[in-house]
């Protein structure tokens, strides 16, 4: 696959989101960074190379890597730091020294997430993966989210159909007490960055991607978003970060497959729909 055709002056939406996702590991120290999916994995690599050299990262199997491995076919030997089989992943995550970046199928105003089943649980309209490690991850360490298709189908009006990942709904907690280690990071979407830092862990709009309006984001979100004045623009990737992404982390250009048509970072520069 040819690398995406963009100039070094500009950046693609994928590159903007990689940089925004990488920020989730800034200043987090010597923890395991887990990114599930193409973009989250690139974000881990970018965080490690840009501003958090302490991060632990794996090859997606069971090795800890001393250097991020480029996506796509292996181009050389792995630089291996250690062993991280699944049994150790659970031991580590229950201990809390991990921060994951995941892509839920549904998310609600409590920060609860679903990757198991859509519709009636006994006979789901769509059976997906299963709860996987979401319940344990959500109650043990911080999780951030990447959502490539910001819409009311993802950010649902009520609760998600199957709560896989615990959130801030006090009705769901024994004794009504939200547990100490529940930590929900930011949600990076194709339109904006959200978090759950409002009063009572309410959902907030943190920043807009270039060329996106507040109205577009609120219309695409099934629950109310707290908007404080004029939200800032999501910071662009630096020139150094773009070089790392393009030359070091993703020379095969797999990031061009994340969003349909690989649009530019500024929505106003996107070709009209259907073009």
């Amino acid at each position: 696959m040819a690398p995406p055709a963009i100039t070094t002056a500009g950046y693609s939406l994928a590159e903007l989101c990689i940089a925004a996702c990488a920020e989730e590991w800034r200043g987090r120290g010597e923890i395991l960074a887990t990114g599930i999916g193409i973009l989250p994995r690139l974000a881990v690599g970018l965080a490690r190379l840009s501003f958090n050299p302490e991060l632990l990262m794996t090859d997606g199997e069971c090795l800890l890597l001393g250097e991020p491995v480029p996506l796509g076919p292996r181009r050389g030997p792995l630089v291996v730091e250690g062993w991280m089989p699944y049994a150790r992943v659970f031991d580590l995550l229950w201990h809390g020294r991990r921060h994951a970046l995941v892509t839920p199928v549904q998310m609600d105003r409590f920060g609860q997430m679903n990757i198991s089943a859509i519709g009636d649980y006994a006979r789901p309209k769509v059976a997906i993966l299963g709860a996987r490690g979401y319940p344990g991850n959500s109650i043990s360490h911080a999780n951030s989210m990447f959502v490539p298709n910001h819409s009311p189908r993802v950010f649902v009006a009520g609760e998600v159909d199957m709560v896989c990942s615990a959130g801030f709904n006090p009705a769901r907690w024994p004794d009504g007490r939200v547990p100490e280690w529940l930590s929900i990071g930011r949600v990076i979407t194709d339109l904006a960055v959200l978090d759950f830092g409002g009063p009572g862990h309410g959902a907030r709009l943190c920043s807009l991607h270039p060329g996106v309006s507040v109205a577009e984001v609120t219309a695409a979100t099934g629950f109310p978003l707290l908007v404080d004045g004029d939200p800032p623009q999501t910071p662009a990737p630096t020139a150094a970060q773009l070089t790392l992404i393009r030359e070091r982390l993703d020379p095969a250009g797999l990031r061009a497959t994340i969003f349909k048509g690989d649009p530019p970072g500024d929505h106003r520069a996107a070709p009209p729909a259907g073009a």
């Binding site: 319940p135 344990g136 959500s138 896989c164 615990a166 709904n169 547990p179 280690w181």
Partner: peptide
């Protein structure tokens, strides 16, 4: 603690 707060 795993499972608390979820539909599991």
């Amino acid at each position: 603690r795993v499972g608390l707060g979820t539909d599991i």
